[in-house]
Design a protein around this nucleic acid. Structure first.
Lengths: 326, 326
DNA sequence: TTGAAAGCGCTAACAC
DNA sequence: GTGTTAGCGCTTTCAA
């Protein structure tokens, strides 16, 4: 546990002031090439590593970007996180991943902790539709980008998917094979869910179908929820011919329930959103709309970086178009 | 973006020194109850939040615990991370989750970054069997706990599962239904893989079977790897009657390959380790050994906390027993 | 272009 | 039990 070498040690060895070493390290200001070389030699020789806490304290901002995610094991968010990581590391920041477990309380705790930690930015995929701690974070000068879901009552950078249009396209696809199409939706407090319901309705109307033809079951974006909702659909007389499932995770429950009922893909067609977890649908019986999840992450990273760089940044909302149906 | 209130603001309002406020905040030393009350009032009134960077700089250690995980979307590690989080948050630390993506380079980058960040501790689930950066981290005084896999050539706190014994039990279970039992193993550079192979062999010997009865295919702990390995097993004459699969993820590939071959659970029995991802095996045709994955996390958290508290801590290796076969 | 020196916000000796 | 003060390691004026 040898004492770590610090800036002044490097300065001493190189025969310059700490200010010069700092300038070489940051590379913004001009330094005499000969001095810079001496500094770089000393840096390497002493295996210098800079103390990011001290740097952050002085700069009133650390090199941490926090990502608060409702469920890191959902492959959709795993993709998003990879995208974030790529963008963030490239810019020399470090991504701090926080799993809120769909719990607004935990979400808020992490938000506060990140602010206390002087995080340079926070990427938030909110569990609910409101986040009290967010206003304080913004107030403290931390840059925030909200992803995946829209948040009420705050003016903040946001990146979301074109949920309404995506659901409309997917529903239309299901309708084209004929029959009645039901919808298992997520919790309506989530903007993703209400938008997808809207898209589903729009597709129905475009096919000359009215309110009486809508079959919507509100569920909760979990495997168990999907399973239960599918069970209720199977009890209907007549049974629907197809179902639009509100997210990838519920699809697992739906597939399982359908398999238990002994139905084949021709009997009950399924439409959902990718990425479908862990190759759960090897035979590709589900029509999935490709989501640009990785891109959601990279765009969010770009937005955060832009906001950090640009002092007077005006919040924007970016809507990413869905991909193909496969 | 109002200026954040700092300790000295609180001290002024409460009419005490900054030292007293600090003492109240940390709660270790004794403070006059009346003063403490005034401080707490001021704290609340000003909505004071402490700057963790400054605190960390002074204490030469931040309140961050880093967790470097090969694949956060593997439900085994998701469980582990939950366990870690529980233990770490309880002690007032914050867990920084880093996804190394099975890439030793990324793993090393994160290790260095965490040291630069003055992390109080690092929990490492190594991608390989060696980690050059680890020695430097320990040298810098950062507490490290290695989990899941054994690392060569370093004396460090370690928490692993009883892999040999678990594999032995599972193989024995498969042997009891008769027939020949094959093994799809992980990469032998991983201690988990070599230990499970050892357990598999031991069970065979205990059943009076020799080397000639061993059928081992080395794979790589991925879905695709499991799929390919199972394909090779199916070509064998005679075909094995059962297979011990080296981890949960490969089991997905195996299940898929088996389904494609049109085999039923009676034709080819499968043994593996939980947690099986995303309810991929709804009919419970796979015999799984329950892994105490959550506990792996909590124990690692305890170890880290103990090491941080105890200046002169001697590294230990903890082996957690497997659970039941279900 | 470079160096001296102040100071980010906090904690920990030390003196009272 | 409390306050004064030095200083953690870095960046950033400011003056030279």
């Amino acid at each position: 546990m040898s004492k770590r070498t610090k800036l002044s040690d490097v300065a001493e060895v190189a025969g310059v002031s700490t200010a010069t070493v700092s300038r070489v390290l940051n590379g913004n200001e001009r330094v005499d090439p000969e001095l810079a070389d001496r500094v770089r030699t000393a840096l390497a020789e002493l295996k210098y590593r800079r103390n990011r806490l001290a740097r952050g304290l002085r700069q009133r901002s650390s090199s941490l970007i926090g990502a608060i995610i409702p469920d890191v094991s959902n492959p959709f968010f795993t993709d998003v996180v990879r995208g974030l990581e790529d963008g963030v590391r490239e810019a020399g920041f470090m991504l701090v991943l926080c799993n809120s477990d769909e719990d607004p309380q935990k979400e808020n705790d992490y938000l506060e902790l990140l602010v206390d930690q002087q995080a340079a930015g926070i990427v938030l995929a909110p569990a609910g539709s409101r986040t009290p701690g967010l206003a304080e974070a913004l107030d403290a000068g931390v840059r925030v980008v909200v992803i995946d879901r829209l948040l009420e009552g705050v003016n903040v950078d946001t990146v979301v998917l074109a949920n309404t249009e995506g659901a409309r396209a997917l529903t239309t696809h299901l309708l084209e094979s004929g029959g009645r199409v039901a919808h298992i939706s997520g919790p309506m407090r989530a903007s993703t869910a209400s938008e997808r319901v809207e898209g589903y309705r729009r597709a129905l109307r475009e096919h000359g179908l009215g309110r009486r033809d809508e079959i919507i079951i509100e569920s909760d974006y979990t495997v168990e929820g999907g399973y239960a909702a599918m069970g209720r659909l199977l009890e209907l007389q007549p049974r629907p011919d197809a179902v639009l499932v509100g997210n990838n995770v519920m699809t697992l429950g739906v597939l399982r329930r359908v398999a238990e009922a002994g139905l084949r893909p021709e009997d009950l067609r399924i439409g959902s959103f990718d990425p479908v977890p862990w190759g759960a649908d090897p035979d590709r019986t589900v029509a999935v709309l490709e989501h640009p999840s990785h891109q959601l992450g990279t765009v969010a990273a770009e937005l955060i970086m832009a906001a950090i760089a640009d002092e007077s940044h005006t919040p924007h909302t970016v809507v990413l178009p869905s991909g193909e149906i496969v």
